Simulated scan of single mutants.
Amino acid sequence: MKKYNVAILGATGAVGQEFLKLIEERNFPFNELKLLASERSAGKTIFFMGKDYIVEEATPDSFNGVQIALFAGGSISKTLAPEAAKRGAVVIDNSSAFRMDPEVPLVVPEVNPEAIKNHKGIIANPNCSTIIMVMALKPVYDAAKIKRIVVSTYQAVSGAGKEGIDELTDQVKSVVENRPVEANILPSASLPKHYQIAFNLLPQIDVFVEEDYTKEEMKMINETHKIFNDYTIGITATTVRVPVYRSHSESINIELNGPLSPEEAKQVLSKFPGVIVQDNPAEMLYPMPLYTSDSNEVFVGRIRADKTVPYGLNMWVVGDQIRKGAALNALQIAEYMIEHNLI
């Protein structure tokens, strides 16, 4: 098998570290590997597959000779992704910088792989919550088309990075030990006000934008339209941060354009690649974030009819947002390109 020169931008962060785990797990065919990060992280050593790699500061010339560039996310993508593409790399970018650019494909390989071939050097990885949702929606959409979606998310603190994880841990310890609780990170470190996440829920992820929706909510709406290439679907979202370390959960209410029973929905979902149906009320079987962390699949349960509309379904969807919601999806895009001779 042909091997490829690969660069990982953001190699020291959570998504970058997940890239490395998955490259080893999936035996990804790399030849040379460059680990890149900001000036602050440059010089660190990462031991990977029997070898020490020195993390380099990312510059435009870092991508000379690179064929696949996996970007873990962040504002630096806006500057360096075009530079990497100019030097012949295909960039698969996990930031929001290019997702809504009409010239950039927004891809979940199981859902819209046909978009990949239209890339011009950059392919965007969708938002983690969007990826998890469209994986569960796609087989239902193909079976009966979708008229309207109402989604509420329950998003883990690791979506805010290592700092979010550390803050939850520290706050739980403070509450248990009856010490004052410090809040410096959530809903977002960049916001002027912060709230306790331990034993609490925060109904704000990212900043508020148009009509008092958050940026995270608008990402789910706009990205889903683009991925399905169907702007007729009515979509509304409420995104919530919850005191869970890893794996996002979503309650999704779907109004269809035609009949699809819960049993038929379970059948089409169970046949869809990357989806596992966990749905047996008699056995109290349903997806939970604690048991889906570090899994590659998206889990779907609590599938039942919504009888308030002619063709309605409810479902509960859970997925590891660092794996399928980020690093795995990006790596699958690269794998698809290799398999189909698109790189």
Rank of each mutant, 00 (worst) to 15 (best):
M1A: 05
Y4D: 05
N5C: 03
V6L: 15
A7M: 00
A7Y: 10
A14Q: 10
G16S: 07
Q17R: 06
Q17V: 03
E18M: 13
F19H: 12
I23T: 05
N27L: 04
N27P: 01
N27Q: 12
N27H: 13
F28C: 03
K34P: 07
S38V: 07
S38N: 03
K44I: 00
F47L: 05
M49C: 01
G50F: 07
G50W: 14
G50K: 12
K51G: 08
A58K: 02
P60I: 01
D61M: 06
S62M: 00
N64S: 11
A72I: 08
G73M: 15
G74M: 07
K78C: 00
L80S: 03
P82Q: 11
P82G: 03
E83D: 06
E83I: 09
G88V: 00
G88D: 05
G88W: 04
A89C: 12
S96L: 07
R99I: 04
M100E: 13
M100I: 08
D101C: 10
P102S: 06
V107D: 01
V108R: 12
V111T: 01
I116R: 04
K117I: 15
N118L: 04
N118D: 14
H119T: 13
H119P: 13
N125W: 06
N125L: 11
N127K: 00
I132Y: 14
A136E: 10
A136D: 07
P139M: 15
V140A: 02
I146V: 13
I146S: 02
S152A: 11
T153P: 07
Y154R: 08
Y154H: 11
A160R: 13
G161W: 06
K162M: 14
E163F: 09
G164N: 07
T169F: 13
T169H: 15
S174Y: 04
L186H: 03
A189V: 09
S190D: 14
S190Q: 15
L191N: 01
H194K: 06
A198D: 01
A198T: 06
A198M: 09
V207D: 13
V207N: 10
F208D: 00
E210N: 03
D212F: 05
K215T: 00
E217Y: 02
K219Q: 13
I221C: 01
I227S: 00
F228S: 02
Y231R: 01
T238M: 06
T239R: 00
R241S: 14
Y245R: 00
E255L: 12
N257H: 05
L260F: 12
S261Y: 10
P262R: 10
E263I: 06
A265C: 13
Q267K: 11
V268C: 09
V268T: 01
V268W: 10
K271T: 14
Q278R: 05
Q278M: 15
D279N: 09
A282D: 05
E283W: 03
E283R: 08
L285I: 14
Y286C: 05
P287D: 11
M288V: 11
P289F: 06
S295H: 15
V298A: 08
F299G: 11
V300N: 05
V300Q: 14
I303G: 07
A305V: 01
Y311K: 01
L313S: 09
N314F: 09
N314E: 09
W316Y: 15
V317L: 14
V318R: 02
G319K: 00
G319Y: 13
D320H: 07
A326I: 05
A327P: 01
A330D: 14
L331I: 15
E335W: 09
E335H: 12
Y336P: 08
Y336M: 03
I338S: 04
N341W: 08
N341M: 06
N341T: 02
